[in-house]
Design a protein around this nucleic acid. Structure first.
Length: 431
RNA sequence: GCGGGUGUAGCUCAGUCGGUUAGAGCGCUAGAUUGUGAUUCUAGAUGUCGCCGGUUCGAUUCCGGUCACUCGCCCCA
């Protein structure tokens, strides 16, 4: 038979990998909780329209990177009104859930999520077709305090999980897209600059000129560089309220000891951003250097058909973080006590019951499943070494009959027999 | 969607300028040790040499295709 292979761009999380992921997600969730964020989750499948309305039809993510989900049958008369997709990101779905669940009546909301996302892209380092994101969203707050808090939380999480407190591991890039008026003015200026016929733009940039001129600033295409360098600066088009907002965010971050680099060409890929946009980047991951990115999206909820409530959020790629974190910080599980019982079903039954008793008293107990024949214990004890147990408990027919058990200290190889009834108090005295 | 690299044992990798039985280390199995593990010693098992096709007397080796992995472009977390 041919070997079954896994789907391209997906990764298995074997136990060690899972421990890394869980450490990242759980650390982030815990720190978010300290800031008043509540964890939540949305389904991995959504109607395509959720992302079309939120992310924008013109983006790569929506136009060509979503996995479609096809039901096994359309016998129900074509009631599939809309196409379903695997979620490519979570912000849109969170907003959808918040609106559907009536949470818009209880603003503000601080929300945290963790889960798999799906994008049909060519896999490479730090880019998978199924990947995991952690993310945080603050909804219903117009004040720049929300921006400051959210960026501070992100910085705190990175400092916590990266080696050496994150020093030298990442940079924070910050920009402001301004409010819709500022953006419209800037957009007009860009169209005039790029579209005036002075430059020979790349094909994608010519397309973006029509759909989303701001994105041209993101282009790395060599032929676009001169045009980009001479382009008008967004910062000069911010109206007074937008300028004040941006200044407040920068001041607040600085007061927390966070000093971002203002990067005027940072516009981000998704259409829904306004005012603050930011990106935590690293040069340690090759081409996919963005660890965590986000921004404010004051127009999003209204664009999705809800009340005109503001929001700001970020998402981080767990696989990317997992490549950088300090392995020493991943908590190792308590090694189990290994209970080896053999000789008859009655001994095994007694052992299973004893294991449960010990577990109820707070001990981690693993039953040896090596099926040692009643003559040799080698396999079971070799397994004990593998799992790193400090004590092995051995109950064979002899011990069983006398209601005793052998306690073997794996470190010094000493062992002696004690009454089963004394076992919990004996183990409790052990370090 | 476009380009580069790689695919040999469970894992990490040698190797074959085309030739008869394809190797190492780790791991695994068994024994030395019939109720006691770390070390040690001894013995053993592994493979469609990614897949399909072509050239050839002969292909794991050369060529083409394909799939997968990987790195970059693009895009993004």
């Amino acid at each position: 038979m041919e070997k079954l292979q896994q789907i391209r761009g997906t990764h298995d999380l074997l136990p060690q990998d899972w421990a890394r992921h869980h450490y990242i997600a759980e650390t982030a969730r815990r720190m978010a909780e300290w800031h008043g964020f509540a964890a939540m989750a949305t389904p991995m499948i959504e109607f395509r329209d959720v992302f079309v309305r939120a992310v924008g039809e013109a983006t790569d993510i929506v136009s060509k990177e979503m996995f479609r989900v096809t039901p096994p049958s359309t016998e129900d008369g074509g009631h599939e009104r809309e196409a379903m997709v695997l979620r490519p990101e979570n912000t849109a779905a969170i907003i959808r859930a918040v609106m559907n669940g009536g949470l818009t009546e209880q603003m503000p909301q601080r929300l945290f999520y963790y889960g798999p996302m799906f994008r049909y892209e060519r896999p490479q380092k730090g880019r998978l077709r199924q990947f995991h994101q952690i993310g945080a969203e603050t909804l219903g707050v117009f004040s720049p305090m929300a921006d400051i808090e959210l960026i501070s939380l992100a910085a705190g999480i990175l400092r916590e999980i990266l080696p050496d407190g994150g020093r030298g591991q990442f940079r924070l890039l910050l920009n402001s897209l301004g409010d819709s008026e500022s953006r419209a003015n800037y957009r007009d200026a860009l169209v005039e600059h790029f579209g005036g016929g002075k430059f020979a733009l790349s094909e994608t940039s010519r397309e973006r000129l029509l759909k989303n001129p701001l994105r041209i600033l993101d282009s790395k295409s060599p032929e676009d560089q001169l045009a980009i360098q001479t382009a008008p600066q967004l910062i000069n088009f911010l109206n007074e309220p937008s300028r004040a907002f941006f200044a407040r965010v920068q001041d607040g971050l600085s007061a927390l000891g966070i000093d971002p680099m203002v990067e005027s060409k940072l516009v981000r890929g998704l259409d829904y951003y306004s005012h603050t946009v930011f990106e935590f980047v690293t040069d340690k991951l090759g081409a996919q250097g963005t660890l965590l990115a986000g921004g404010r999206y004051d127009g999003l909820m209204a664009a999705m058909g809800g009340p005109a409530l503001p929001g700001i959020g970020w998402a981080a790629g767990v696989e990317r973080l997992a490549e950088l974190i300090d392995s020493a910080k991943i908590p190792t599980p308590r090694p189990p006590i290994l209970l080896i019982c053999f000789g008859s079903d009655a001994v095994e039954n007694r052992g299973m019951a004893l294991a449960n008793e010990l577990r109820e008293k707070g001990f981690v107990v693993e039953m040896a499943m090596q099926q040692p024949d009643h003559k040799r214990l080698q396999k079971a004890l070799q397994h004990a070494n593998r799992v790193g147990t400090e004590f092995s408990l051995i109950m064979g027919p002899d011990e069983f009959l006398s209601d005793m058990i052998e306690v073997k200290n794996m470190a010094n190889r000493e062992s002696h027999k004690i009454a089963v009834a004394e076992l919990p108090s004996f183990l409790a005295k052990m370090p």
